[in-house]
């Protein structure tokens, strides 16, 4: 079975690896000259947080999301399973209660000592919090590189600077993972903006979400003193650079979390577009020999493994044996 996968974002990489693991001969086409050149995934937070995301997302993501965490742990190094810490400034404490209620008790409540025990540097600054122990995070760029290496070691072929057309691509089947560029009906863009900071003073061991009534922000440690701060959610297909307002909001949140971020170096400040359908849930659809995987929204790393499995099932038939997950 020969399969062409188009687009080497997280959806395409996960699909290519899954298909190759199940014996298909796969060629992965990427229009950029290098990994992540135009992929929304390259700018992702890398939080694998199905419970926290269910605060605003459909609870249908929880099961596939938990499966996603296991998938990543089995395939890439540095998947950290320290859970997620959710905090709010004292005057927005009501937001914590709201968040806890929306996530239906999946998080455990922390007092000041509990916060300090998890993140010593935040002890004394936050007296209440929530901890979601079943959640994880990874570095999206390292994870994508690790998947690409795994794909090649499984015999897959990577073609960069290759803007293949799904209708024209060679192979028995095609998996279209181009995201926004696929132009699927009903697919829209939700703009997101993010920062990468470098600080020698701040030390965090897990993603921290800082709740705020208007601009909830998260900070994800990337190791080596690097931190990703994200992300805005704007109904727009404008691919332009980060606006001053968004930059201020992101920076303010980081500063509110830990004043030492004031001295951090801003390494990156970028904007990207998340592809999303009207229900903000991904879809795997088939038309002839083309399987399209689209609409991962803000859950690319969380849900790509589940979508990749569904795409592979459509092409190769349902997986058999004890490893097969529940549908």
């Amino acid at each position: 079975m020969h399969v062409a996968v188009i687009g080497a974002g997280v959806a395409g990489l996960a699909s290519a690896v899954t298909l190759a693991e199940r014996g298909a001969r796969v060629i992965l086409h990427e229009r950029s000259a290098s990994l992540g050149g135009e992929a929304a995934s390259w700018l992702a937070g890398g939080m694998l947080a199905p419970f926290c995301e269910s605060e605003s997302a459909d609870t249908a993501i929880i099961g596939p999301g938990l499966g996603g965490i296991a998938w990543w742990r089995d395939r890439v190094p540095d998947v950290t399973t320290g859970g997620t810490l959710v905090l709010a400034p004292p005057r927005d404490a009501a937001e914590l209660d709201r968040f806890a209620a929306r996530t239906k008790g999946a998080g455990s409540r922390l007092d000041a000592e509990g916060v300090a025990a998890l993140e010593p540097q935040l002890g004394g600054r936050f007296r209440r919090g929530l901890h979601y122990p079943g959640e994880a995070h990874l570095d999206p760029r390292r994870a994508m590189e690790a998947l690409a290496e795994r794909f090649v070691s499984l015999g897959g072929a990577m073609r960069f600077s290759s803007a293949a057309d799904p209708e024209m691509a060679e192979g028995d089947h095609v998996v279209d993972c181009r995201g926004i560029a696929a132009g699927a009906a009903g697919l829209r863009s939700v703009r997101g903006e993010m920062l990468i900071l470098s600080s020698r003073e701040v030390s965090l061991s897990r993603p921290v979400r800082l709740l705020h009534p208007r601009s909830p922000i998260y900070v994800v440690p990337r190791g080596g003193g690097r931190f990703m701060v994200g992300a805005t959610m704007i109904e727009s297909s404008d691919p332009g650079g980060v606006t001053l307002r968004s930059a201020v909001e992101l920076m303010n949140a980081a500063y509110a979390l830990h004043p030492a971020f004031a001295e951090a170096e801003v390494l990156e400040m970028r904007a990207g577009l998340r592809p999303a359908f009207a229900d903000n849930l991904p879809r795997v659809t088939q038309a002839g020999r083309v399987v399209t995987l689209a609409g991962l929204y803000r859950h690319g790393f969380l849900l790509a493994p589940d979508c990749a499995r569904k795409a592979a099932d459509l092409i190769l038939g349902p997986e058999e044996g004890p490893e097969s997950e529940t549908p």
Partner: peptide, 15 residues
């Protein structure tokens, strides 16, 4: 914010 820039928020506006 939702529609800043020309046609940038077209999809949401259609909805």
């Amino acid at each position: 914010r939702e529609s800043a820039g020309e046609r940038a928020g077209q999809a949401f506006w259609d909805i």
